[in-house]
Design a protein around this nucleic acid. Structure first.
Lengths: 301, 301
DNA sequence: GATCGCGATAGGCTTGACCTATGAACCTTC
DNA sequence: GAAGGTTCATAGGTCAAGCCTATCGCGATC
């Protein structure tokens, strides 16, 4: 049985006439005769009572056409729905973002994304890198903003912008008077984030790679870390986008001598079919951050 | 688009694996790959995200499979319903019966019909001949029990049994003493049914064919006519099956010298597809009335 | 590095839906 | 009552499409 056959059935039932039904279906009358006959043979039921005048649906036919109409309607609903889904820039887009980036990046890019991609329903999801990669692989996310290189060939990524690190010091700190900070000088009293934050590893690497660095404190979030620094418990490195929040907290910021920083990338599954949406989202973010990245590059020269 | 394609779609979505889905569908894996690809091209939507591990349904696909499942389910419901309708001896069977026959025949044949054709839902419809023929032609009846020959080649009929007429007389009537009645002797004070009853025409023909026969009275039903005869207002001819009711009313019944009678026939549209049901119903009625018909024939010899 | 498993592709076969032309039955009209 | 115009059914040929087997390319795994 075929959806086409069901359409033929409905047409003949409606017109009660093979010729007119054939015209309505855009086929010849013999085609309809043959197909209806096949349908009758398949079902073992006479569907129409033919006479020289008309083709009247039998009682059995009347019982069947309800289902037939439902099937045809559902099939058409599939195509209609597909038409609406055709635009890859439309629909839900679940974007993972690491916690040291989300609170500072989202306010910058949310409105531009809405404006550039009005039909894309952006759903941000904040979590640490490994959790985001896991959710990417299980199709629970469509893309993720990370500050690390992707791992594994099943995922790919492209860089969006460079984010320099800044030294964050309490105002009364001995190094606060210097215009530029040498990272290794921070190692003595540096504070770091908890395990799992990529920023923790990057900070430690920039400051000398000592795994025992940072003492017993493990801040669970960047705002917490900033408050600790502001309170005079130590120093840290912060990503450039957090500069505003750090200054608001009364922290002194200084550029680093080695121009250390991180590259924010957007990552997605290699086979993800809505590549266009990923590209578009990345493009909007990169555009919005271009001034920031150029400023960072200029400052580094 | 095709129901087969939708089944393929559902299978791949369920198994998340082309090979296993192909096995479940009973086709080869390349077949499935090609058909799904065509479906994707038709819809303009990527349905599955393929990788070397698995074929995961996309968000778009998940939105579509609900409709797809509904369409396939409806299509299967058609076949299931058709299977139930396949037996022509099952289902509604609308049988028209003329009013001078229905009250006496139905009590005789209803139970035998139920027993012989338990799945046939018999719906009797009582009306005069012309109305029954009209309803037959408009497909509002499946068959009709008549006492006339069918008219027009679009309808056909077969005889079921012969029903002799009997002279019906008030006990005090002068002719009541005779063992056999000559029909034309009844003409003087005969009572007839209203226009439209075939029995009216047959009575008048048997008694001399005078159109002015029967005086001003036009009984609207046979029971009324019987009561009029019982009350002494005149005589009439009654069909044999009404004999019991007439005797109950206190009427004297006598055979006719010419053995006049009528043939009860079952009529149906020439193209009616449930011919088997018509034949079966007719057969049960003829069987049940065989004794009656033979008795009538014997009585006539 | 070889093997295995996945989906995609290629080439050839066969089915079946379609068309036009024609037939058979029936109705209407002159 | 013969002619012509309906109706649906049938016949024969064409062509698209679905299917198969064989093979490829890619990635993971041992």
């Amino acid at each position: 049985m075929n959806l086409r056959d069901l359409r033929y059935l409905l047409a003949v039932a409606e017109h009660e006439h093979f010729g007119r039904a054939a015209k309505a279906c855009g086929v010849s009358q013999p085609t309809l005769s043959v197909q209806i006959r096949k349908l009758e043979d398949l079902m073992g039921v006479t569907l129409f009572e033919r006479s020289s005048k008309t083709a009247a649906p039998t009682a059995a036919c009347l019982q069947l056409i309800g289902h037939a109409r439902a099937a045809v309607t559902e099939a058409e609903a599939i195509l209609a729905t597909a038409r609406n889904l055709r635009d890859p820039l439309s629909g839900r887009f679940r974007l993972g973002i690491i916690p040291t980036l989300a609170p500072y990046l989202l306010p910058l890019v949310f409105a531009p994304l809405r404006e550039a991609l009005p039909t894309l329903e952006l759903e941000p999801w904040e979590d640490q890198t490994t959790a985001l990669l896991e959710r990417l692989r299980t199709h629970e996310l469509d893309a993720a903003l990370l500050a690390t290189e992707e791992d594994g060939s099943d995922l790919v990524s492209r860089p969006l912008f460079d984010e320099p690190f800044l030294a964050a010091l309490p105002p009364e700190h001995p190094l606060a008077g210097r215009p530029v900070i040498v990272e290794t000088d921070l190692a003595r009293d540096i504070l770091v984030l908890a395990d799992g934050h990529c920023l923790r590893d990057q900070t430690m690497e920039a400051c000398g790679g000592d795994a025992a660095l940072g003492g017993p404190l493990r801040a669970s979030s960047l705002p917490t870390l900033l408050n600790m620094v502001a309170a005079g418990y130590g120093t840290t490195l912060i990503p450039g986008l957090a500069a505003g929040a750090a200054q608001d907290a009364g922290i002194v910021l200084r550029p680093l001598s080695t121009r250390a920083g991180r590259t924010v990338r957007i990552a997605w599954r290699a086979h993800f079919p809505r590549r266009a949406a990923v590209e578009a989202v990345g493009e909007v973010i990169a555009d919005r951050l271009r001034a920031f990245a150029e400023g960072a590059a200029a400052g580094a020269v």
